[in-house]
Amino acid sequence: MGANQFRGGLLSPKEHRRSSSGSSGSRKSSPSLPQRKLRNSSRASPNRSNSFSSVFPHEVFMKMLSFLDAEDLCRVGRVSNLFHLLSQDTTLWYDLLLKDYSHRLNYVTQEERDKRMTSWQASPLTSYIRERRRFFDINLKSPDYLAIYVIDHPEFNMVLTDTINSEESGSDIERASFRRLRQTWSTNIAESVKRNFDFVREAYHNIVLWKTLSDKVKELVPQQSGVRYECVLDDDGELILDITNRLDEKTMEHILNQLKENVELLTFLGGPKFNVRRIQS
């Protein structure tokens, strides 16, 4: 996990943020989906093959789904009518937003929360995306919010600190600015973020991406296979997955497809845009 896993994108001024596919958030809940299954009550011995989808009370499903993230919730919504309805729940999406942006929404009062929730009911997913995009933008525009974000997210802070401490390449000017940053970073993060806003913004953009995807890769690569891999974001905002041991073709395809889907969902859900591509070695 060296410094250059996202270095290219970090130092290039490129604007590879989301494309202008403005229509993507226009999902309406389909009126044709029947409501009938939503309120099944529990029974004692569910052992028919199709039991799973009808056996749980509503609140049990909600508890289960509350552990999923946005990407998974989208996928689950495509399983069946019942799951589609369940995945449209306002509270689920609102809580997801709170989880992602707790550093900002924390200060929202209960009344405000209820009021906003009501306005969310028509289309929770769309509302979620709208808000998430808004926060993503705010973080990228406001030094204050970005500083709060860095302080609130120890993992992000750690990766950033590692980068700052290990950065040796680049021009003299770059090296000098890194040296200055190193000195202030450990003592006053908020101040450092504000002073080096452009740098941290790029890093935020790239690390959030990189982290999300490399977590995904970690999940996907078979654990006992002794496979070593590295995720790198290159200059063009492409994620390169470097796998040292050979995996069989099927597994590779599976990983690649999953990553692609994840990337598409991530972009759709208000994240930045980037590509996953396989390089033949």
Binding site: S24, S26, R27, S30, S32, L33, S49, N50, S51, F52, S53, C74, R75, V76, G77, R78, V79, S80, N81, F83, H84, N257, K260, E261, E264, L265, T267, F268
Partner: peptide, 28 residues
Amino acid sequence: IRERFGIQDDLTEEDKAAMRKAWGATKN
């Protein structure tokens, strides 16, 4: 998920097309 939990796929092709479009999922 359907296979793991033995859930029947009761979504129509129309529903699926709408979801695919909305959620930008891959075709396969």
